[in-house]
Design a protein around this nucleic acid. Structure first.
Lengths: 157, 157
DNA sequence: GGTGAAAAGCTTCGTGT
DNA sequence: ACACGAAGCTTTTCACC
């Protein structure tokens, strides 16, 4: 699964704009249409390309509050984790949830809601009601400095 | 900027797959091609739709380590922040960087690298060399439970 | 919101470098 | 492996209803 310069160039372009036509993409990476399409298909086939999605503007949708929540559990047993994770799946407010290492927390969540009132409802009405959740530490997004959907291809050999 | 049922339905579909043809999208939301395209264009025009991007598979690219880093600064002065933020922009390892509230940290970073050795290089060679960076607390991703590129449209009126 | 026709883009060949 | 070109098809983009 060796990726050459051109493959990386294709990935870089598509990471920034998946709505490019094959012709435009071919021009940008210095190829003609057919080999370009071949490469894209191969990248999809190999799984390097996962999928293409449309990103929405949170603020325009009225979702103005982003919170990062660190959560610790009382016991580290499989049933605790399973219940927590399956419950979280049903909460639309949860943008991401990661099991992480560390003494201070077990899970790291990113939650998106309309305002502080909704956040409070989420915290008290949903999150802290899950059995096993003991520590909850919230911090709120003030300003997004960097948000790359792109992966760092530059420092790959 | 009122979004009706159909608009939300369009956004839901595109958030999951931006490679849908207009025809397929129209079928899914129960519209014919032209009004469907009209709505999509309007959503782009209004800025609700930001852009479309291709997502890559981190592991297949050899980027196997994700770290969450909490950073605190010695002083909260504009020049400190500006230098930190502009320096971070040049680090390809940084997937996201957010200025956040809280006593324990000022910034929250998500960093993606190939392995622990690269991470160490990033931490010692790059991050901690930025003036003003005092506290650095890392935790590492064990397992991704939820990762939605989608925003929660379900609980919008 | 729907229809239909023209324009543009994509796919898949084959041939040649 | 890539470039080129043409046929056949789907999609997009307009008019207009």
């Amino acid at each position: 699964m060796g990726l050459d310069k051109i493959d990386l160039s294709i990935l870089r372009e598509l990471q920034q704009d998946s709505s490019l036509t094959n012709q435009e993409l071919a021009d940008r990476v210095g190829l003609s249409a057919s080999p370009c399409l071949r490469r894209v298909k191969a990248l999809e086939e190999s799984g390097v390309i996962d999928k293409s999605v449309t990103l929405l503007n949170q603020n325009k949708l009225g979702l103005k509050l982003t919170a990062f929540i660190q959560i610790s559990m009382d016991r580290h047993t499989p049933d605790r984790f399973e219940l927590f994770e399956s419950t979280l799946e049903s909460f639309p407010e949860v943008k991401s949830c990661s099991l992480v290492t560390g003494q201070s927390a077990d899970y790291l969540l990113e939650v998106v809601v309309e305002d502080m009132e909704r956040y409070q409802e989420f915290l008290l009405g949903k999150l802290t009601r899950i059995p096993g959740v003991t520590g909850v530490h919230s911090s709120f997004l003030l300003r997004r400095i960097i948000s790359r959907t792109s992966l760092p291809l530059d420092h790959l050999k």
